[in-house]
Structure formats: structure tokens, C-alpha cells
Amino acid sequence: MPHARTADGTRIAFQVGGVGQPLVLLAGQSNNHHWWDPVRADFEASYRTITLDWRGTGDSDKPDEVYSTPGFADDVVAVLDALGLPAAHIYGTSMGGRVAQWIAINHPDRLQALVLGCTSPGAKHGYERSQEIRRALADPARTDRVLLDLMYTPAWLAANPGPYPVLGDTTMPAYAKRRHLVASNKHDAWDGLPTITAPTLILHGSDDIFSPAANAQLLADRIPRARAELIAGARHAYFHEFHSVAGPLVLDFLRTQDRP
């Protein structure tokens, strides 16, 4: 598996598939590139998809040091450099959407268009999940079941027994999971959002309470010329359960931003 090397020497594993203009797909907190496995094919007929394993996950290095969403953004840029790509479309979901915000803010020349999914500007200014949800997720005996209920509708879960690629990388060391949690919790891109110049589409499930759906319009109001779309009935993993709706929305948006 190929790796990019960051400025601090960390090796970041990445994966490439499909043909066409480059589209980087960014996974959620404590997950690796398998987050995108169920829907990657939706994009690969039109785009060269690029995923990566966050530091601390998958086949990337796992240094026990401070992680941050701006730092993860620098890791994504290192992957673009390794591939010789001056710019790409960026689609980030959940924590990946937080990282994508920093790519747009700190590396505006490296992206053509931005898609933010089921994400927020950070706890200080965004809408956060309830304390009841936080307590439920803190119970190791219940974590996976609680996560599944937050990710998918009951009807979909009943019809799809798994496996589910969004429950986290089980190979992660405990310290890396803690580092990811702190990085996501400390995310605050509020002041930089108005400087984003990339065309931006924001997607969110209307029934998402893991990252409350009100964050979609909050981001759209903060980012110049951004547009928000709510996917009716969807929860946090809208991009998977409702891929027949979300995929075309993303593809139609990206095609209007493709470079000749």
C-alpha cells in the first residue's frame, strides 16, 4: 500500500481507485478508509477517488502525540503532494468534514470544490449532541448499539445485518482513539469559515442527532455562497443508507465545478 510522508515524518497510507478528476473522500473520527467502502463505487465511474487512513488508524503510522483537525488537513495535503496533484475535490463527512474545513481555510489552492457532510464548525459555535447521548456512548457495553442507532434508521438496520464500516477502526490503539476524540472535540474553524472561497455543498440527514442537523444551515450561513441540503429521514450515516439520494447530489454538484 502506498504511503505519503508528512513534514513531521509520519507515514500516511492512501488508496486510489476509479478514473477522472481527483476526489478525496475523508472518513469520520477513529475510522479508516473502509468508512467509504459501501459507496465508493458510486463515484468511481466519474472520478479518481482517493481515501486515506488517518494517522492513528489503518496502515498509517500511529504516533502517540497531539492530533488536531488542522494537522489532519496537513496530512491530506501530503497525500495530494505524494500523488502529484495540485488540487482535488474534497468531500469530508463527520470529523472528515471538520478536517475538510481546514483544507479550504489553510490550503485554498489545493481544492476545486468542497462537500461537507454531517459535520459542524465545532462545539464552541455549533450545535452539539445531548449529554444523554454522550453518557450512552461512554458505556463500553452499549457503544456499538448506540452508534448504530445514531447512524442508521431502525428499518434499515433490520434489513441490513452488517457488517457496518462506520463503527471505528478496531485495530486502533487506545491512545490513538483518545487522540482522535480530543482532536475532534477541540475543532473550532468558526473564524476561518468566512474566508472559504471554494464552491461548497453541505449535506446532512434531517434526523441526525449525533451531529445535529441544524449545523448544516449554520455552516451554509457562515461560508460564502454555500448551499445546504437536508436528506429527509436520514441519520448520521446518510451517505451510506441514503446513498441513492446523496450520491447524485454530490455528483451533480461536482460536475458543475470540474475543470476542463
Rank of each mutant, 00 (worst) to 15 (best):
N31E: 02
S46R: 15
T119I: 08
R55C: 00
Q101H: 04
S46K: 15
D8W: 15
H34I: 14
S68M: 11
T57R: 15
Q15N: 13
M95R: 13
A7D: 08
N106W: 09
R48G: 00
V79L: 12
S30G: 12
T57N: 06
L25M: 11
V24L: 13
P70V: 07
D81G: 04
L83N: 10
K62P: 02
A82Y: 03
G97E: 05
D61N: 07
G122M: 06
S94A: 07
D61K: 11
G20C: 03
Q21H: 12
T49S: 03
L25G: 06
A7M: 04
L52K: 04
D42V: 09
A45Q: 14
T119D: 02
E128D: 13
P70Q: 09
Q15K: 13
A27G: 08
Y91R: 08
V99A: 07
P86A: 11
P86C: 06
P22C: 04
L85R: 09
A100G: 02
A7F: 06
V79K: 07
V115K: 04
C118T: 15
Q112R: 14
Q131V: 13
P86R: 13
D8C: 05
L23T: 07
T6P: 00
K62H: 11
Q29K: 03
D64S: 10
Y91H: 13
R129W: 08
G92F: 03
G92R: 05
G117P: 02
P121C: 04
D59K: 14
E128H: 14
P121M: 04
V16Y: 12
F14K: 01
I12V: 13
V19L: 08
Q29L: 01
A88T: 00
D42R: 14
A45M: 09
S120A: 10
G18W: 13
R98C: 03
L111Q: 02
Q21N: 07
G84C: 09
D37R: 15
S68Q: 11
Q112W: 10
A13N: 06
I50C: 01
V79R: 11
I50S: 00
A82V: 00
D61R: 14
L23S: 07
D61A: 11
D61Q: 05
